[in-house]
Design a binder for these strands. Structure first.
Lengths: 340, 340
DNA sequence: CTGTTAGCGCATTCAT
DNA sequence: ATGAATGCGCTAACAG
């Protein structure tokens, strides 16, 4: 391992000069800078992160806390991660992923007390999220993707659920649909305070009321069969349903299978709007799904940017950003069928 | 931030005594130990990881390199991560997830030169994986989940593809099936050297030959529609196909839809064996899928254990473990239909 | 513009 | 069984 002293010796300068060449926080003559760079290259020098962190009290590491829930890391989760990691890197930080559970506060405590991470990004934020209270108390800079009930202690970025729900329902309203079925995540997920399940439910209800649409909400396990069963049941109880909105992708596949088994056709008899971010998934379905899609990449980027700003400024609270979803009309929606 | 000196002062002992009570590598009297522990508790002390790492030259951090590929992090990926992280933690290490791309060797270099990580676990190992050569040259301890063509430089753990393929085909053979369609990942994935795609293809061919089964392999994009189209085409060209094996879950859903559209029934007319690890997925399909399932948890645990052993012993090479898959018969397989 | 020096918080080698 | 002293590799005053 080659150290800064080695570089200094070879370049014929003081250690601090090498340090300052690296950080650039004080002027260095071109000649010296070149000599130092040459020495670093010759010796294949690369600074020791631990030593740098210890001396500067800044580790350069941001942790993204991504609890591995039962649904695994979804496609949109991948985009969040990527975007945040890229944003971090372009600012000279490294991002690591920590998979401690939401309620493993001891684990979080250990992690954070060790002084390894400068800041934290929270994924899968729940309405009543113990991590938010803990980090806030501990004074660790953090930002949230999603939103907890404790506001003002940190920046967050979340999907604009109101806009999303309104756009989806307004579109169906234009097509003449008067009753819409909303397929949500299961009761247990809603109760645990999962943002998408809770906030989108509320947003759908508000939007339906505004538009004068009748909303039938069903909570459904994230499984093919659960969707299949739920829709079969509902269709028997309420024949003539003409539109579905769903955030529950796996259940939706089952719903659509049930629709087929009933001899119905999408979009002729039934319109489907899915809330999901992967265009690939939407387009590989038959028929291709009309979607309202959140913008995970934008969200990840923004969450990291807000956090880095907190680190720079020393201010804890920060930007509260809502990111709009986009409606993309594909083949799964059409005008309400005429009643004969 | 409270330091070791604070603890020492409060306990009325030397700094080194606190250090030794923490590490336990030299005898401490009960009385002093208690005093030190009390002081630590009172001051809510927790050791600084950067300082400890700098002084001991051991960061206690293992990095799992998990490039985010287009298929995202799958359900089995989640198990690998969980298992490895747990194993690490129980040995006093922390595991972080790094999402640098497979061919981002510069990024890996930076990461590793910084002295932040003591060891590395490679996921998504490709047959010709640049990371293997790099880490091997750099002398960084690592282990692989999957297998590259460079052997003997590090421990690895991989699915026993030969056993897996043989079990699947032998079961179909018993049921009387003489021709089996194998739905693999797309050509591009195979060409990139993705282990599952490459090795399982070879294993299937060998097993088919051994058993005297005719194998029809098709490479298929990981999309519903790709599977749908591929099977529709194949069924037209080769009517009377009675069995399918697939590693490509998303394509398989399309395949089964195509089967239905052709008026065929699973398992009456067609048997389906899926290679996937999630029992949940298998059971939520209609009909529930017969599977050969690899053991991702076991693999993740073993990979981490092997790595930690390398760290302890200082030896680079290590255990080469093949983990068996398990055949679980559900509702998607049955005897070959009689030809009239 | 550059050099000198004092820590950052801890592990570890000598002493005793 | 305990204490004192040195240094891990680097940053950031402080001097010039």
């Amino acid at each position: 391992m080659t150290t800064m002293s080695d570089v200094a010796r070879r370049a014929g300068v003081a250690r601090s000069t090498v340090s300052y060449t690296l950080s650039g926080i004080r002027p260095i003559s071109d000649e010296v800078r070149d000599r130092v760079h040459a020495a670093m290259r010759d010796l294949d020098y690369s600074p020791n992160a631990l030593a740098r962190g210890l001396a500067s009290r800044r580790s350069g590491i941001i942790a993204m806390l991504y609890p591995l829930l039962e649904r695994g890391i979804s496609l949109s989760g991948r985009d969040h991660i990527w975007a945040a990691a890229e944003e971090a890197r372009s600012a000279g930080y490294n991002m690591v992923l920590w998979t401690t559970a939401v309620d493993d506060i001891d684990g979080l405590g250990e992690l954070v007390q060790q002084g390894l991470v400068e800041g934290v990004i929270l994924m899968e934020v729940r309405h009543n999220d113990p991590r938010v209270a803990f980090l806030s108390d501990a004074g660790i800079p953090f930002s949230e993707i999603g939103r907890s009930c404790i506001e003002g202690v940190a920046p967050f970025v979340d999907t604009d659920f109101d806009q999303t729900a309104f756009d989806a329902l307004a579109y169906l309203d234009e097509l003449g649909h008067e009753t819409v079925v909303f397929v949500n995540h299961p009761r247990s997920t809603i109760d645990s305070g999962y943002g998408l399940a809770v906030n989108f439910q509320a947003a759908m209800e508000t939007a339906a009321q505004t538009l004068g649409i009748e909303l039938l909400s069903i909570a459904c396990d994230t499984q093919f069969r659960a969707g299949y069963d739920a829709f079969s049941e509902l269709a028997a109880a309420r024949p003539g349903i003409s539109a579905i909105v769903s955030t529950n992708e796996r259940a939706l596949v089952g719903v659509m299978e049930a629709v087929r088994r009933l001899g119905l056709d999408v979009p002729r008899d039934l319109s489907v709007v899915a809330m999901l971010s992967s265009a690939e998934t939407a387009e590989s379905a038959i028929p291709a799904l009309t979607t309202v899609s959140p913008a995970p990449y934008e969200m990840g980027r923004t969450a990291m940017a807000s956090l880095l700003e907190c680190l720079d400024s020393g201010v804890r609270a920060g930007a509260q950003t809502l990111v709009a979803s986009q409606l993309t009309v594909r083949e799964s929606t059409g005008p309400v069928p005429s009643r004969n």
